[in-house]
Design a protein around this nucleic acid. Structure first.
Lengths: 238, 238
DNA sequence: CGAGGGTTTGAAGTGCATCAAATAGTGTGG
DNA sequence: CCACACTATTTGATGCACTTCAAACCCTCG
Protein backbone atom coordinates (compact mmCIF):
# COMPACT_ATOMS: atom_id res chain seq x y z
CA UNK A 1 0.00 0.00 0.00
CA UNK A 2 1.49 3.30 -1.11
CA UNK A 3 1.74 6.05 1.47
CA UNK A 4 -0.82 8.82 1.03
CA UNK A 5 0.17 12.35 0.13
CA UNK A 6 -1.12 15.57 1.57
CA UNK A 7 -3.01 16.42 -1.61
CA UNK A 8 -5.05 13.26 -1.26
CA UNK A 9 -6.52 14.55 1.99
CA UNK A 10 -9.97 16.07 1.52
CA UNK A 11 -8.88 19.35 3.02
CA UNK A 12 -5.97 19.84 0.65
CA UNK A 13 -7.40 18.38 -2.53
CA UNK A 14 -8.15 21.74 -4.08
CA UNK A 15 -5.16 23.59 -2.70
CA UNK A 16 -2.85 25.53 -4.96
CA UNK A 17 0.47 23.90 -5.80
CA UNK A 18 2.30 26.87 -4.39
CA UNK A 19 0.68 26.43 -1.00
CA UNK A 20 1.47 22.72 -0.95
CA UNK A 21 5.04 23.46 -1.93
CA UNK A 22 5.36 26.08 0.76
CA UNK A 23 3.99 23.96 3.56
CA UNK A 24 5.99 20.95 2.38
CA UNK A 25 9.17 22.94 2.70
CA UNK A 26 8.60 23.12 6.42
CA UNK A 27 7.43 19.54 6.86
CA UNK A 28 9.14 17.11 9.20
CA UNK A 29 8.68 13.40 8.76
CA UNK A 30 9.29 11.16 11.74
CA UNK A 31 8.94 7.48 12.50
CA UNK A 32 7.32 6.68 15.83
CA UNK A 33 6.77 3.41 17.63
CA UNK A 34 3.78 2.39 19.69
CA UNK A 35 3.25 4.46 22.80
CA UNK A 36 4.89 7.67 21.55
CA UNK A 37 2.98 10.68 22.84
CA UNK A 38 2.99 13.42 20.19
CA UNK A 39 1.42 16.14 22.29
CA UNK A 40 -0.72 16.56 25.37
CA UNK A 41 -4.00 18.38 25.94
CA UNK A 42 -3.12 21.96 26.88
CA UNK A 43 0.26 22.06 25.12
CA UNK A 44 1.17 25.10 23.10
CA UNK A 45 0.53 24.18 19.46
CA UNK A 46 2.72 25.18 16.54
CA UNK A 47 2.28 22.21 14.28
CA UNK A 48 -0.41 19.87 13.04
CA UNK A 49 0.10 16.32 11.83
CA UNK A 50 -0.45 14.21 8.75
CA UNK A 51 -0.34 10.42 9.07
CA UNK A 52 1.66 8.54 6.45
CA UNK A 53 1.21 5.15 8.11
CA UNK A 54 0.20 3.67 11.47
CA UNK A 55 -2.56 4.70 13.84
CA UNK A 56 -2.86 7.60 16.26
CA UNK A 57 -5.16 7.79 19.24
CA UNK A 58 -6.77 11.12 20.15
CA UNK A 59 -7.85 11.32 23.78
CA UNK A 60 -8.43 13.38 26.91
CA UNK A 61 -8.13 12.71 30.61
CA UNK A 62 -10.28 13.86 33.51
CA UNK A 63 -8.97 14.93 36.93
CA UNK A 64 -10.48 11.69 38.28
CA UNK A 65 -8.13 9.80 35.99
CA UNK A 66 -10.51 8.44 33.38
CA UNK A 67 -9.25 8.45 29.82
CA UNK A 68 -11.70 9.18 27.00
CA UNK A 69 -10.72 8.13 23.49
CA UNK A 70 -12.07 10.84 21.18
CA UNK A 71 -11.03 9.23 17.91
CA UNK A 72 -8.42 7.06 16.26
CA UNK A 73 -6.87 8.24 13.01
CA UNK A 74 -4.91 6.45 10.29
CA UNK A 75 -2.98 7.00 7.08
CA UNK A 76 -4.10 10.01 5.05
CA UNK A 77 -5.77 11.81 7.94
CA UNK A 78 -4.66 14.93 9.77
CA UNK A 79 -5.03 15.93 13.40
CA UNK A 80 -4.08 18.76 15.73
CA UNK A 81 -5.19 21.35 13.18
CA UNK A 82 -8.14 22.42 15.35
CA UNK A 83 -5.66 24.16 17.65
CA UNK A 84 -5.84 27.19 15.36
CA UNK A 85 -9.34 27.79 16.70
CA UNK A 86 -8.30 27.25 20.30
CA UNK A 87 -5.72 30.00 20.79
CA UNK A 88 -2.98 27.64 19.64
CA UNK A 89 -3.61 25.16 22.43
CA UNK A 90 -4.13 21.50 21.59
CA UNK A 91 -7.65 20.56 22.74
CA UNK A 92 -6.71 16.88 23.17
CA UNK A 93 -3.72 14.55 23.50
CA UNK A 94 -2.32 12.34 20.74
CA UNK A 95 -0.48 9.03 21.05
CA UNK A 96 0.78 6.57 18.45
CA UNK A 97 -0.97 3.22 18.93
CA UNK A 98 0.37 1.42 15.86
CA UNK A 99 3.87 2.35 14.75
CA UNK A 100 4.26 4.40 11.62
CA UNK A 101 5.38 7.62 9.98
CA UNK A 102 3.90 10.95 10.87
CA UNK A 103 4.59 14.28 9.19
CA UNK A 104 4.31 17.48 11.20
CA UNK A 105 3.48 20.75 9.47
CA UNK A 106 3.35 24.36 10.67
CA UNK A 107 -0.05 25.63 11.79
CA UNK A 108 0.98 29.15 10.84
CA UNK A 109 0.86 28.35 7.13
CA UNK A 110 -2.54 26.79 7.54
CA UNK A 111 -3.87 29.80 9.36
CA UNK A 112 -2.46 32.22 6.84
CA UNK A 113 -3.93 30.31 3.92
CA UNK A 114 -7.30 30.15 5.62
CA UNK A 115 -7.31 33.87 6.24
CA UNK A 116 -6.22 34.85 2.77
CA UNK A 117 -7.81 32.23 0.54
CA UNK A 118 -11.57 31.99 0.76
CA UNK A 119 -11.67 28.75 -1.22
CA UNK A 120 -9.53 27.13 1.40
CA UNK A 121 -11.63 28.53 4.21
CA UNK A 122 -14.69 27.00 2.53
CA UNK A 123 -12.91 23.65 2.29
CA UNK A 124 -12.15 23.85 6.00
CA UNK A 125 -15.79 24.63 6.66
CA UNK A 126 -16.86 21.60 4.66
CA UNK A 127 -14.45 19.41 6.61
CA UNK A 128 -15.59 20.82 9.89
CA UNK A 129 -19.24 20.32 8.95
CA UNK A 130 -18.55 16.71 8.08
CA UNK A 131 -16.87 16.19 11.42
CA UNK A 132 -19.78 17.85 13.16
CA UNK A 133 -22.15 15.35 11.55
CA UNK A 134 -19.90 12.53 12.63
CA UNK A 135 -19.92 13.72 16.21
CA UNK A 136 -23.68 14.21 16.15
CA UNK A 137 -24.01 10.63 15.08
CA UNK A 138 -21.58 9.56 17.78
CA UNK A 139 -23.62 11.24 20.49
CA UNK A 140 -26.77 9.66 19.11
CA UNK A 141 -25.22 6.21 19.05
CA UNK A 142 -24.11 6.49 22.64
CA UNK A 143 -27.71 6.86 23.72
CA UNK A 144 -29.56 4.64 21.24
CA UNK A 145 -27.25 1.75 20.43
CA UNK A 146 -26.28 -1.00 22.83
CA UNK A 147 -22.73 -2.35 22.94
CA UNK A 148 -23.32 -5.02 20.27
CA UNK A 149 -24.90 -2.51 17.89
CA UNK A 150 -22.05 -0.06 18.37
CA UNK A 151 -19.60 -2.78 17.42
CA UNK A 152 -21.73 -3.72 14.42
CA UNK A 153 -21.79 -0.10 13.29
CA UNK A 154 -18.02 0.10 13.65
CA UNK A 155 -17.65 -3.01 11.47
CA UNK A 156 -20.00 -1.59 8.84
CA UNK A 157 -17.76 1.44 8.54
CA UNK A 158 -14.77 -0.80 7.90
CA UNK A 159 -16.52 -2.62 5.08
CA UNK A 160 -17.07 -1.68 1.47
CA UNK A 161 -20.75 -0.73 1.29
CA UNK A 162 -21.03 -1.53 -2.42
CA UNK A 163 -20.12 -5.13 -1.71
CA UNK A 164 -23.23 -7.29 -2.05
CA UNK A 165 -21.73 -10.75 -1.61
CA UNK A 166 -19.68 -12.14 1.25
CA UNK A 167 -17.54 -9.67 3.16
CA UNK A 168 -14.27 -9.95 5.04
CA UNK A 169 -13.25 -7.39 7.62
CA UNK A 170 -10.01 -7.12 9.53
CA UNK A 171 -9.92 -5.14 12.76
CA UNK A 172 -7.36 -2.37 12.27
CA UNK A 173 -6.02 -2.35 15.83
CA UNK A 174 -6.31 -4.07 19.21
CA UNK A 175 -9.74 -5.09 20.40
CA UNK A 176 -9.00 -3.27 23.64
CA UNK A 177 -8.53 -0.11 21.63
CA UNK A 178 -11.68 -0.66 19.59
CA UNK A 179 -13.50 -1.05 22.89
CA UNK A 180 -12.09 2.26 24.16
CA UNK A 181 -12.97 3.94 20.86
CA UNK A 182 -16.55 2.75 21.29
CA UNK A 183 -16.71 3.80 24.92
CA UNK A 184 -16.87 0.38 26.53
CA UNK A 185 -14.68 -1.94 28.61
CA UNK A 186 -12.62 -4.71 26.94
CA UNK A 187 -14.68 -7.34 28.76
CA UNK A 188 -17.90 -5.79 27.53
CA UNK A 189 -16.48 -5.68 24.01
CA UNK A 190 -15.65 -9.36 24.10
CA UNK A 191 -19.08 -10.35 25.33
CA UNK A 192 -20.92 -7.93 23.04
CA UNK A 193 -19.04 -9.22 20.00
CA UNK A 194 -20.16 -12.74 20.90
CA UNK A 195 -23.72 -11.44 21.21
CA UNK A 196 -23.42 -9.78 17.80
CA UNK A 197 -22.26 -13.09 16.35
CA UNK A 198 -25.27 -14.89 17.81
CA UNK A 199 -27.67 -12.23 16.57
CA UNK A 200 -26.32 -11.85 13.04
CA UNK A 201 -24.46 -15.07 12.24
CA UNK A 202 -21.12 -13.40 11.45
CA UNK A 203 -17.94 -15.47 11.76
CA UNK A 204 -15.12 -14.34 14.03
CA UNK A 205 -11.52 -15.58 13.98
CA UNK A 206 -9.34 -13.32 16.09
CA UNK A 207 -9.18 -9.98 14.33
CA UNK A 208 -10.79 -11.36 11.16
CA UNK A 209 -14.53 -11.18 10.69
CA UNK A 210 -16.50 -12.65 7.84
CA UNK A 211 -20.13 -12.66 6.79
CA UNK A 212 -22.28 -13.77 3.87
CA UNK A 213 -23.70 -10.32 3.36
CA UNK A 214 -23.65 -6.90 4.98
CA UNK A 215 -27.43 -7.06 5.30
CA UNK A 216 -27.06 -9.34 8.29
CA UNK A 217 -25.35 -6.53 10.14
CA UNK A 218 -27.39 -3.68 8.73
CA UNK A 219 -30.64 -5.26 9.85
CA UNK A 220 -29.45 -5.55 13.41
CA UNK A 221 -27.52 -2.30 13.73
CA UNK A 222 -29.22 0.43 11.74
CA UNK A 223 -32.64 0.32 13.41
CA UNK A 224 -30.99 2.20 16.26
CA UNK A 225 -29.65 5.02 14.10
CA UNK A 226 -31.32 7.99 12.44
CA UNK A 227 -29.10 7.94 9.32
CA UNK A 228 -29.99 5.46 6.60
CA UNK A 229 -27.33 2.91 5.83
CA UNK A 230 -24.67 3.87 3.44
CA UNK A 231 -23.70 6.55 5.92
CA UNK A 232 -20.15 6.30 4.60
CA UNK A 233 -19.45 9.98 4.20
CA UNK A 234 -18.88 10.03 7.92
CA UNK A 235 -16.06 7.53 7.67
CA UNK A 236 -13.20 9.80 6.74
CA UNK A 237 -14.25 12.86 8.75
CA UNK A 238 -11.42 14.13 10.88
CA UNK B 1 -36.06 41.31 28.77
CA UNK B 2 -35.58 42.89 25.33
CA UNK B 3 -35.63 40.58 22.35
CA UNK B 4 -32.22 39.91 20.83
CA UNK B 5 -31.30 41.10 17.35
CA UNK B 6 -29.46 39.22 14.67
CA UNK B 7 -26.35 41.37 15.08
CA UNK B 8 -26.04 40.26 18.68
CA UNK B 9 -25.50 36.68 17.55
CA UNK B 10 -21.83 35.70 17.51
CA UNK B 11 -21.99 34.73 13.88
CA UNK B 12 -23.35 38.07 12.69
CA UNK B 13 -21.55 40.43 15.06
CA UNK B 14 -19.00 41.51 12.50
CA UNK B 15 -21.27 41.43 9.48
CA UNK B 16 -21.58 44.40 7.19
CA UNK B 17 -24.70 46.53 7.58
CA UNK B 18 -25.56 45.94 3.97
CA UNK B 19 -25.65 42.18 4.45
CA UNK B 20 -27.82 42.49 7.55
CA UNK B 21 -30.14 44.83 5.69
CA UNK B 22 -30.36 42.46 2.76
CA UNK B 23 -31.11 39.36 4.80
CA UNK B 24 -33.55 41.28 6.99
CA UNK B 25 -35.54 42.24 3.92
CA UNK B 26 -36.37 38.60 3.41
CA UNK B 27 -36.99 37.76 7.07
CA UNK B 28 -40.26 36.33 8.28
CA UNK B 29 -41.18 36.58 11.94
CA UNK B 30 -43.71 34.13 13.29
CA UNK B 31 -45.19 33.33 16.67
CA UNK B 32 -45.40 29.65 17.52
CA UNK B 33 -46.92 27.82 20.42
CA UNK B 34 -45.58 24.75 22.17
CA UNK B 35 -45.50 21.66 20.00
CA UNK B 36 -45.09 23.43 16.64
CA UNK B 37 -42.76 21.44 14.39
CA UNK B 38 -40.69 23.84 12.29
CA UNK B 39 -39.07 21.25 10.06
CA UNK B 40 -38.27 17.56 10.00
CA UNK B 41 -34.99 15.70 9.47
CA UNK B 42 -34.64 15.15 5.71
CA UNK B 43 -36.78 18.12 4.65
CA UNK B 44 -35.55 20.31 1.82
CA UNK B 45 -34.03 23.40 3.45
CA UNK B 46 -34.38 26.94 2.17
CA UNK B 47 -34.37 28.88 5.40
CA UNK B 48 -32.60 28.94 8.73
CA UNK B 49 -34.00 30.29 11.98
CA UNK B 50 -33.23 32.91 14.58
CA UNK B 51 -34.97 32.72 17.95
CA UNK B 52 -36.43 35.93 19.33
CA UNK B 53 -38.03 34.28 22.36
CA UNK B 54 -39.04 30.83 23.59
CA UNK B 55 -37.19 27.53 23.29
CA UNK B 56 -36.68 25.16 20.38
CA UNK B 57 -35.79 21.50 20.62
CA UNK B 58 -33.44 19.98 18.02
CA UNK B 59 -33.82 16.22 17.70
CA UNK B 60 -33.67 13.11 15.55
CA UNK B 61 -35.58 9.84 15.49
CA UNK B 62 -34.38 6.31 14.81
CA UNK B 63 -36.33 3.69 12.83
CA UNK B 64 -36.87 1.88 16.15
CA UNK B 65 -38.75 4.96 17.35
CA UNK B 66 -36.32 6.40 19.88
CA UNK B 67 -36.04 10.16 19.95
CA UNK B 68 -32.66 11.75 20.61
CA UNK B 69 -32.57 15.37 21.73
CA UNK B 70 -29.51 16.90 20.11
CA UNK B 71 -29.80 20.33 21.68
CA UNK B 72 -32.26 22.93 22.95
CA UNK B 73 -31.83 26.52 21.79
CA UNK B 74 -33.21 29.80 23.10
CA UNK B 75 -33.41 33.52 22.39
CA UNK B 76 -30.49 34.89 20.36
CA UNK B 77 -29.45 31.57 18.88
CA UNK B 78 -29.80 30.29 15.33
CA UNK B 79 -30.43 26.79 14.00
CA UNK B 80 -30.98 25.02 10.71
CA UNK B 81 -28.05 26.87 9.13
CA UNK B 82 -25.96 23.70 8.91
CA UNK B 83 -28.20 22.56 6.05
CA UNK B 84 -25.98 24.56 3.68
CA UNK B 85 -23.30 21.91 4.24
CA UNK B 86 -25.73 19.03 3.80
CA UNK B 87 -26.97 19.59 0.24
CA UNK B 88 -29.78 21.77 1.56
CA UNK B 89 -31.30 19.00 3.64
CA UNK B 90 -32.02 19.60 7.33
CA UNK B 91 -29.87 17.15 9.32
CA UNK B 92 -32.30 17.17 12.27
CA UNK B 93 -35.85 18.10 13.24
CA UNK B 94 -36.89 21.21 15.16
CA UNK B 95 -39.87 21.71 17.47
CA UNK B 96 -40.94 24.63 19.64
CA UNK B 97 -40.99 23.52 23.28
CA UNK B 98 -41.69 26.88 24.91
CA UNK B 99 -43.86 29.29 22.92
CA UNK B 100 -42.19 32.30 21.37
CA UNK B 101 -41.21 34.21 18.26
CA UNK B 102 -38.96 32.77 15.63
CA UNK B 103 -37.57 34.55 12.57
CA UNK B 104 -36.83 32.56 9.44
CA UNK B 105 -34.16 33.77 7.01
CA UNK B 106 -33.05 32.57 3.59
CA UNK B 107 -30.11 30.17 3.51
CA UNK B 108 -29.20 31.42 0.04
CA UNK B 109 -28.04 34.78 1.40
CA UNK B 110 -25.98 33.04 4.04
CA UNK B 111 -24.33 30.82 1.48
CA UNK B 112 -23.60 33.67 -0.88
CA UNK B 113 -22.06 35.76 1.86
CA UNK B 114 -19.94 32.87 3.02
CA UNK B 115 -18.67 32.25 -0.49
CA UNK B 116 -17.89 35.85 -1.26
CA UNK B 117 -16.78 37.27 2.07
CA UNK B 118 -13.81 35.58 3.65
CA UNK B 119 -14.28 37.39 6.95
CA UNK B 120 -17.72 35.86 7.24
CA UNK B 121 -16.44 32.42 6.30
CA UNK B 122 -13.89 32.76 9.09
CA UNK B 123 -16.62 33.72 11.54
CA UNK B 124 -18.55 30.64 10.51
CA UNK B 125 -15.43 28.56 11.04
CA UNK B 126 -15.02 30.00 14.53
CA UNK B 127 -18.66 29.19 15.35
CA UNK B 128 -18.34 25.72 13.97
CA UNK B 129 -15.14 25.12 15.93
CA UNK B 130 -16.85 26.26 19.11
CA UNK B 131 -19.72 23.86 18.47
CA UNK B 132 -17.26 21.09 17.78
CA UNK B 133 -15.67 21.66 21.17
CA UNK B 134 -19.09 21.61 22.77
CA UNK B 135 -19.95 18.30 21.15
CA UNK B 136 -16.58 16.83 22.09
CA UNK B 137 -17.33 17.74 25.66
CA UNK B 138 -20.81 16.26 25.34
CA UNK B 139 -19.43 12.92 24.16
CA UNK B 140 -16.91 12.95 26.97
CA UNK B 141 -19.58 13.67 29.56
CA UNK B 142 -21.73 10.83 28.36
CA UNK B 143 -18.97 8.40 29.19
CA UNK B 144 -17.37 9.94 32.28
CA UNK B 145 -20.18 11.64 34.20
CA UNK B 146 -22.98 9.85 35.99
CA UNK B 147 -26.54 11.20 35.89
CA UNK B 148 -26.14 13.44 38.95
CA UNK B 149 -22.91 14.96 37.60
CA UNK B 150 -24.49 15.64 34.22
CA UNK B 151 -27.30 17.52 35.94
CA UNK B 152 -24.79 19.43 38.04
CA UNK B 153 -22.84 20.37 34.93
CA UNK B 154 -26.06 21.56 33.29
CA UNK B 155 -26.82 23.74 36.31
CA UNK B 156 -23.31 25.21 36.30
CA UNK B 157 -23.85 26.33 32.72
CA UNK B 158 -27.03 28.13 33.76
CA UNK B 159 -25.25 30.03 36.52
CA UNK B 160 -23.08 33.13 36.41
CA UNK B 161 -19.53 31.81 36.93
CA UNK B 162 -18.26 35.10 38.34
CA UNK B 163 -20.74 34.87 41.20
CA UNK B 164 -18.87 33.97 44.36
CA UNK B 165 -21.67 34.20 46.92
CA UNK B 166 -25.01 32.40 46.99
CA UNK B 167 -26.51 31.48 43.65
CA UNK B 168 -30.07 31.06 42.39
CA UNK B 169 -30.84 29.08 39.28
CA UNK B 170 -34.16 28.61 37.54
CA UNK B 171 -34.64 25.66 35.21
CA UNK B 172 -35.48 27.11 31.79
CA UNK B 173 -37.91 24.38 30.73
CA UNK B 174 -39.63 21.20 31.90
CA UNK B 175 -37.60 18.74 33.93
CA UNK B 176 -38.68 16.03 31.51
CA UNK B 177 -37.06 18.03 28.73
CA UNK B 178 -33.89 18.67 30.72
CA UNK B 179 -33.74 14.92 31.25
CA UNK B 180 -34.06 14.28 27.51
CA UNK B 181 -31.41 16.91 26.80
CA UNK B 182 -29.06 15.12 29.16
CA UNK B 183 -29.86 11.72 27.71
CA UNK B 184 -31.68 10.21 30.66
CA UNK B 185 -35.21 9.22 31.65
CA UNK B 186 -37.44 11.60 33.67
CA UNK B 187 -37.45 9.15 36.57
CA UNK B 188 -33.67 8.98 36.52
CA UNK B 189 -33.51 12.77 36.44
CA UNK B 190 -35.73 13.05 39.47
CA UNK B 191 -33.72 10.57 41.47
CA UNK B 192 -30.36 11.89 40.30
CA UNK B 193 -31.31 15.45 41.23
CA UNK B 194 -32.12 14.21 44.74
CA UNK B 195 -28.74 12.49 44.82
CA UNK B 196 -27.06 15.72 43.70
CA UNK B 197 -28.83 17.55 46.53
CA UNK B 198 -27.57 15.03 49.09
CA UNK B 199 -24.03 15.18 47.72
CA UNK B 200 -23.70 18.95 47.40
CA UNK B 201 -26.26 20.46 49.78
CA UNK B 202 -28.08 22.51 47.14
CA UNK B 203 -31.69 23.50 47.80
CA UNK B 204 -34.44 22.55 45.37
CA UNK B 205 -37.94 24.02 45.19
CA UNK B 206 -39.63 22.91 41.98
CA UNK B 207 -37.77 24.57 39.13
CA UNK B 208 -35.81 26.85 41.48
CA UNK B 209 -32.44 25.79 42.75
CA UNK B 210 -30.31 27.64 45.28
CA UNK B 211 -26.91 27.15 46.80
CA UNK B 212 -24.47 28.98 49.06
CA UNK B 213 -21.69 28.86 46.49
CA UNK B 214 -20.97 27.34 43.10
CA UNK B 215 -17.98 25.54 44.60
CA UNK B 216 -20.30 22.97 46.11
CA UNK B 217 -21.29 21.93 42.62
CA UNK B 218 -17.91 22.36 40.98
CA UNK B 219 -16.26 20.06 43.48
CA UNK B 220 -18.68 17.28 42.76
CA UNK B 221 -19.10 17.74 39.01
CA UNK B 222 -15.83 18.83 37.45
CA UNK B 223 -13.64 15.95 38.57
CA UNK B 224 -15.33 13.96 35.80
CA UNK B 225 -14.49 16.45 33.05
CA UNK B 226 -11.28 17.25 31.20
CA UNK B 227 -12.02 21.00 30.90
CA UNK B 228 -11.26 23.15 33.93
CA UNK B 229 -14.21 24.96 35.40
CA UNK B 230 -15.20 28.19 33.87
CA UNK B 231 -15.86 26.31 30.68
CA UNK B 232 -18.41 28.94 29.78
CA UNK B 233 -17.39 29.53 26.20
CA UNK B 234 -19.21 26.34 25.39
CA UNK B 235 -22.48 27.71 26.67
CA UNK B 236 -23.60 29.70 23.65
CA UNK B 237 -22.25 27.43 20.93
CA UNK B 238 -24.88 26.55 18.39
C1' DC C 1 -63.07 22.80 40.67
C1' DG C 2 -61.58 19.33 37.72
C1' DA C 3 -58.76 17.47 33.84
C1' DG C 4 -54.42 16.73 32.23
C1' DG C 5 -49.72 16.88 32.15
C1' DG C 6 -45.59 17.06 34.79
C1' DT C 7 -43.14 14.97 38.69
C1' DT C 8 -42.06 11.78 42.17
C1' DT C 9 -41.79 7.22 44.28
C1' DG C 10 -41.70 2.19 44.39
C1' DA C 11 -40.44 -2.35 42.67
C1' DA C 12 -38.24 -5.11 39.47
C1' DG C 13 -35.31 -5.88 35.39
C1' DT C 14 -31.31 -5.10 32.17
C1' DG C 15 -26.92 -3.76 30.63
C1' DC C 16 -22.60 -2.60 31.50
C1' DA C 17 -18.70 -2.21 34.88
C1' DT C 18 -15.69 -4.28 37.99
C1' DC C 19 -12.83 -7.70 40.07
C1' DA C 20 -10.62 -12.03 39.52
C1' DA C 21 -8.61 -15.57 37.08
C1' DA C 22 -7.89 -18.57 33.18
C1' DT C 23 -6.49 -18.85 28.33
C1' DA C 24 -4.63 -17.43 23.91
C1' DG C 25 -1.38 -14.98 21.36
C1' DT C 26 2.97 -12.46 20.43
C1' DG C 27 7.61 -11.21 20.47
C1' DT C 28 12.21 -12.05 22.46
C1' DG C 29 16.51 -13.97 23.68
C1' DG C 30 18.88 -18.08 23.90
C1' DC D 1 13.32 -23.15 16.55
C1' DC D 2 11.85 -23.31 21.40
C1' DA D 3 10.73 -21.64 25.98
C1' DC D 4 9.66 -17.70 28.58
C1' DA D 5 7.65 -13.30 29.59
C1' DC D 6 4.32 -10.32 28.73
C1' DT D 7 0.18 -8.67 26.78
C1' DA D 8 -4.31 -9.31 24.78
C1' DT D 9 -8.52 -11.67 25.15
C1' DT D 10 -11.97 -14.41 27.18
C1' DT D 11 -14.82 -16.16 30.91
C1' DG D 12 -17.01 -16.19 35.46
C1' DA D 13 -19.16 -13.97 39.40
C1' DT D 14 -21.01 -10.00 41.37
C1' DG D 15 -22.42 -5.13 41.91
C1' DC D 16 -24.21 -0.73 40.49
C1' DA D 17 -26.56 2.60 37.50
C1' DC D 18 -29.96 3.40 34.79
C1' DT D 19 -34.35 1.81 32.64
C1' DT D 20 -38.92 0.17 32.68
C1' DC D 21 -43.49 -0.39 34.33
C1' DA D 22 -46.87 1.06 37.57
C1' DA D 23 -49.09 4.15 40.46
C1' DA D 24 -49.49 8.10 43.38
C1' DC D 25 -48.96 12.93 43.86
C1' DC D 26 -48.89 17.68 42.60
C1' DC D 27 -49.50 21.69 40.00
C1' DT D 28 -51.44 24.58 36.73
C1' DC D 29 -54.72 26.37 33.83
C1' DG D 30 -59.05 26.54 31.66
Amino acid sequence: MAEPTLQQNTLFQRCSDSFIKEIRARAQKQHHSKGKVLFVHGDQAERFYFIKSGWVKIFRETPAGTQVVVDIFSAGQIFGETAIFEDSIYPYSAEVVEKGDVVSLPLSNLKLEMESNNKFALDMLACMARYRRKQDTEIEHRSTQNAAQRIGCFLLHLADPSETGSVKIHLPYDKTLVAARLGMQPETFSRALAKLRDKTGIHIKGADIEMDSLNQLIGYVCVACSSEFPCKDLKAAQ
